[in-house]
Design a protein around this nucleic acid. Structure first.
Lengths: 157, 157
DNA sequence: CATTAATTTATGGTATATCATGGTAATTTA
DNA sequence: TAAATTACCATGATATACCATAAATTAATG
């Protein structure tokens, strides 16, 4: 039994020609303990797949329902975009899910998938795209150093 | 046994010349577990069919009652439009429903129907109309990014 | 600390079950 | 009783669940 439920770490796994890929063991244990399911969808902003636990989407549904009008265009657009693209992925007894052609294509994934923890969510990248993204993120964060002042305590210059 | 009940994903199914079409298996399992029925009606705002579980219409009735006056024109119009148009669709042992001529025509559907999950509801489009709509929605939502602040869960910074 | 044993995890292969869909029989209703 | 609607059966395609082995991680031991 764990205290927190965060997707962490970066894991490279093989994708076979049927699109099967092992969900990292640590991710699986989170899904099991929450007794929920994994949901994946195309990232809106990056060439990668995004995933989370179904509970999170459920929360999102409630939030959209309460924050926008039942008949509003905004509610319509948002729900189409999010729920229309998201899909449940259950893993078999060996811990694998089968990613769809659509998702794989969006992320340029062929034979290797990179799972990247993002806390409540995770992303799945192709190795090439991930290496570019990681470099970008690192330089971006260094540029914006000042923002991090309040978090200095935890670093070792 | 599932914890949450969301209509997800986008599924293309064939419509035969009697209007028969398979409800996606995942949608069926939701209807079964809630042991309810599917209700469909013409979308008020788009050339598509809209569907949901009967329970949701019940909730909508309550909402209309509380948000509009009992004798108002608005309440009259809304109830006419929605409840007057809605119809229960039971699926047979193989999981198919028979869409009416009226609904098919409203959505320009001939031989293929596209089921699009919207969380509590789903829509049924013709392939052509759906592809246009999806493109529109994607560009629209990206333009209006701020809308997503309250729905952050689904995006990445 | 090095080496080995034990356990968990990843992955290839295959059997099984489910699903979509064409067809037909039974039932309704007009 | 003819037409239309609904329920059921059959089949191929697809996705899913399971088994077996390899790799890697963790624990145990000297």
């Amino acid at each position: 039994m764990r205290k927190t439920f965060l997707f962490l770490d970066t894991v490279y796994n093989k994708v076979d020609n049927k699109g099967r890929v092992s969900l990292p063991a640590d991710y699986r244990s989170i899904v099991k303990e929450l007794n929920s399911e994994i949901v994946c969808y195309r990232s809106l902003t990056a060439p990668c797949i995004e995933g989370c636990v179904e509970d999170l989407l459920e929360k999102l549904a409630v939030e959209i329902e309460t924050s926008t009008d039942f008949f509003s265009q905004a509610q319509d657009d948002l729900t189409n975009l999010i729920f229309g693209d998201a899909k449940r992925f259950t893993f078999d007894s060996t811990g694998r899910i089968v990613l769809s052609e659509k998702l794989l294509k969006h992320a340029d994934i062929t034979d290797v998938a990179v799972f990247v923890g993002k806390g409540r969510k995770f992303q799945i990248w192709s190795p090439q795209n991930w290496e570019l993204e990681e470099a970008r993120v690192r330089s971006e964060v260094l540029k914006n150093r000042p923002i991090l002042n309040s978090a200095k305590a935890g670093e070792n210059k």
